[in-house]
Design a protein around this nucleic acid. Structure first.
Lengths: 150, 150
DNA sequence: GAGTTTTTGTTGCATTTGCAACATAAACTC
DNA sequence: GAGTTTATGTTGCAAATGCAACAAAAACTC
């Protein structure tokens, strides 16, 4: 069995660690950059969907988002037709910081992909998307309290 | 810029989340499976190296390992020639649980790689190793307090 | 081999994380 | 449309996480 997932774990932890260190400069606490980029790119998204998108616990997302709001990076707005949901939008400050996050993330992407040809980048991208889709099915299944069989 | 790293982050969080839920059955707390598998596969490793291998903060590793010891999954042994280091070894209980972890991890690998051909699995494996090597350089650099330029 | 730097390990503290458990609006069922 | 189930959001804990700061052994420098 090829240990794909161990490699992925190492890469993800290393990157997350780097980002968290680098974003302290913008007063973003651990993990908050994840939420902010998605809110900027998907304005109006609700936190439940955001948690699914990022693959993080609902309650963790709730608290990170609350903190983003308190610190003025995003706004929560009521929906006209649905009283229950709160749509998320970036503030101007959030938009501004977004550009720094993108710059950093793009740099990390470049570093990570150094030495790969364009075709290889294309291939790994496609394959990773497949892997992600494969695994998110199980994630949702297990998160809902179901038991996998193996 | 291909968003490779975002895919990797999603996959890693989903997998980690699944594993943590599934390993509670064996009284392994969040993240502990990471350390245990590496100790079984690299008996005698010291915690500093383990932290580097996993790509986690030294102090986080220290505490996870302490808990693994308290709960009887591993032993810490003194080195004959070096008073400072403590070598880590699995106990019988640790070895036993290791097999369940491997079974689970192998299953996750299988799920993740469903629909990929053997060649594709080989390719993604090779490419991920390259990416991991690329990024671990930066991780060590930033963890030591250096600043990246971008 | 004295002095310096690096390696390895620890503890204190503030923060994030996530499961359980709850609340209520919305959607669905009959 | 009353009753049930699902979707969305929250709060209370208990635990993991990670930075700062410290300690001491080991390795290096001259």
């Amino acid at each position: 069995m090829k240990e794909i997932l161990r490699e992925i774990g190492m890469i993800a932890r290393a990157l997350d660690s780097i980002s968290n260190i680098e974003f302290k400069e913008y007063d973003l606490a651990k993990g908050q950059y994840l939420y902010l980029v998605r809110i900027v790119e998907n304005p109006g998204i609700i936190q439940e969907k955001l948690a699914e998108m990022i693959k993080v616990d609902r309650t963790t997302a709730a608290r990170s988002i609350k903190k983003l709001e308190i610190n003025g990076f995003i706004d929560k707005r009521d929906d006209e037709h649905n009283q229950k949901i709160k749509k998320l939008f970036p503030t101007e400050k959030g938009e501004r910081v977004y550009h720094f996050i993108r710059r950093e993330n793009d740099h990390s992407d470049k570093v990570a992909l150094a030495g790969l040809s364009e075709e290889e980048v294309e291939i790994i991208h496609v394959l990773l998307q497949k892997v992600r889709k494969n695994i998110e099915t199980d994630w949702e299944y297990v998160k809902k309290g179901n038991k996998r069989n193996y």
